[in-house]
Design a protein around this nucleic acid. Structure first.
Length: 223
DNA sequence: CCAGACGTTGTT
DNA sequence: GTCTGG
DNA sequence: CCAGACGTTGTT
DNA sequence: GTCTGG
């Protein structure tokens, strides 16, 4: 699955990769956890351009009575996007890119209780896009704009570590995912497999386990 | 009809 | 054990 | 995902 | 809001 990720490059590298200007408050992050603000790119149909902004991680559907439901809606299985009541409308109308340069997965250590965290990132350390959906909930002061990260089968590099991973989009699929006119077949094709081409995994310290720790020590190789 | 869920992961 | 919060 | 709480009353 | 279950 995907319950923690990183966005460590400086703002210039992110702007260059995605061709957008970043919102206020950008800083490199080494341990982004659910319920926190994540950087996302959405297509602004009115302006005919893509925009980057902050979304709260943990989808709160517009019909939710209690926004705390978002604490549990952090991932959406790609296989169910078109049919699950909680995701269906967002899948049709509100797809987005979640900007990351790596994500964490915890592997069970055979015969032990503890789990070993791994940081999965690109060889070239470029930032990339995770497939996401977003929603608006509430109005006025209460308004909450939230998102969920789509998960799928692991690629070769991730398979030994975990049985799910976020849907990493190729550069070409970013455009298809954001296209409001995208047809169901195209989206299903994209959802089937993450782009694992450039990914590698490194074991890291369990300091990353605590969401309160958000420094470079989270991604340091364990050696 | 109304009531109640609406989700994923991991673990058993 | 299960839920909430980060 | 993991960490940490999990409760009420009354008194300060 | 919309679907499923009773």
């Amino acid at each position: 699955m995907c319950g923690r990720f990183t966005l460590t490059p400086d703002s210039g590298a992110v702007e260059a990769e995605f061709g957008v200007s970043l919102p206020d408050g950008y800083r490199p992050r080494f341990n982004i956890a659910p319920s926190q603000e994540v950087l996302a790119v959405v297509r602004d149909a009115a302006r005919g351009e893509d925009r980057a902004g902050w979304l709260r991680w943990g989808l709160v559907p517009h019909w939710a009575k209690d926004p705390a439901i978002g604490n549990r809606m952090i991932n959406a299985r790609a296989e169910g996007l078109a049919t699950k009541p909680a995701f269906r409308s967002a899948f049709r109308e509100r797809r987005c890119l979640i900007v990351a340069d790596g994500f964490y997965e915890w592997a069970r250590v055979p015969g032990e209780k503890r789990k070993q965290p791994y940081w999965i990132h690109r060889h070239d350390h470029r930032p990339f896009a995770l497939a996401g959906l977003w929603e608006r909930w509430g109005r006025g002061d209460e308004e909450l704009v939230s998102c969920v990260i789509v998960t799928t089968e692991p690629t070769e590099v991730v398979r030994p570590i975990h049985d799910r991973m976020p849907l990493v989009l190729s550069v070409e699929d970013r455009e298809r995912w954001l296209d409001p006119e995208a047809d169901a077949g195209t989206l299903a094709g994209i959802s089937r497999r993450a782009d694992g081409e450039a990914l590698q995994a490194r074991a890291v310290s369990t300091v990353v386990n605590s969401p309160a720790v958000d420094g470079p020590e989270c991604v340091e190789p364990l050696d």
